[in-house]
């Protein structure tokens, strides 16, 4: 009986979904409703209003600034949740099969791998910074650059040959926490500056130079904060 009910429920839900999909406008056509209302305005006004040559960044940081602020906050909240969960659970019990697993993963680091990682790290960091700083002109931006930077730091932490601590532990704990919070903090602070100078939250200054500076500040804040959060997630999971 229960199985039958479940089947009916799934069939009804599936029918609704299939009907909705069938009635969707043809994908990829230019006259579907998605493209005729809001998007058209974004594409037309995005370059002047957004102050960025990359339309995606212009929409993210101008029309959708509050959404983007929400996204930055979500990443940060994820780190807090993982930190809370791992510290609540306490140190993992190292016993039985888990112990064997951990032992086999902790072989000494190969000098070849260590050398190549150290050789490539500065180039990866430069690329990450380039992606962050040029995000308003080329594909890329704070999130992408931050993830590349975070990936490089995690790579270094994996292969630096030390199993006792990660690189960001070299920083004093207070500073580390401020850097992890840099994304939402910088974004919020620049949003408030907009409120002070022009009366609108998250509005960009009119002068092109200051507008570009604000954009770069946003991208750097999101990028460096995001990288710190990713390294923190990795560390929380590993040390937990």
């Amino acid at each position: 009986m229960r199985k039958f009910l479940a089947l009916v429920l799934i069939a009804a839900l599936g029918a609704v979904l299939i009907a909705a999909v069938v009635n969707l406008p043809e994908p990829g056509t230019t006259d579907s409703p998605v493209h005729t209302h809001v998007s058209a305005g974004y594409i037309k006004g995005g370059h002047e209003a957004g102050g960025a040559d990359n339309l995606v960044t212009a929409v993210l940081l101008n029309y959708r600034a509050i959404d983007t602020f929400g996204e930055v906050t979500v990443i940060f909240t994820a780190l807090i949740a993982v930190l809370a969960a791992t510290s609540l659970a306490g140190p993992t019990e190292r016993s039985g099969t888990q112990n064997i697993d951990l032992k086999t993963t902790r072989v000494p680091v190969s000098p070849v791998v260590s050398f190549v990682v150290r050789l490539m790290a500065p180039f990866i960091a430069t690329f990450a910074l380039f992606v962050m700083l040029k995000g308003h002109e080329l594909p890329g931006g704070g999130f992408q650059g931050g993830v590349v930077l975070g990936a490089m730091l995690i790579l270094l932490a994996l292969f630096s040959g030390r199993t006792d601590k990660t690189d960001d532990e070299e920083l004093p704990p207070g500073l580390r926490n401020w850097i992890r919070a840099a994304g939402p903090l910088v974004f919020g602070a620049l949003g408030l500056t907009g409120l002070v100078f022009s009366g609108w939250l998250f509005s960009l200054p009119d002068h092109p130079f200051w507008r570009e500076m604000v954009m770069i500040g946003l991208e750097l804040g999101i990028g460096i904060g995001g990288a710190a959060v990713l390294v923190g997630l990795f560390r929380a999971l590993r040390e937990g």
Binding site: L102, Q144, A151, I154, L237
Partner: peptide, 25 residues
């Protein structure tokens, strides 16, 4: 290209490392 970059870095890079770290536990 913006989404592709994010997908490559987050999906193929960071997420895999975080999952493997969790699996080690």
């Amino acid at each position: 290209p913006d989404v592709a970059m994010t997908e490559a870095a987050v999906g193929a890079g960071i997420t895999a490392v975080l999952f493997f770290t969790a699996i080690a536990k």
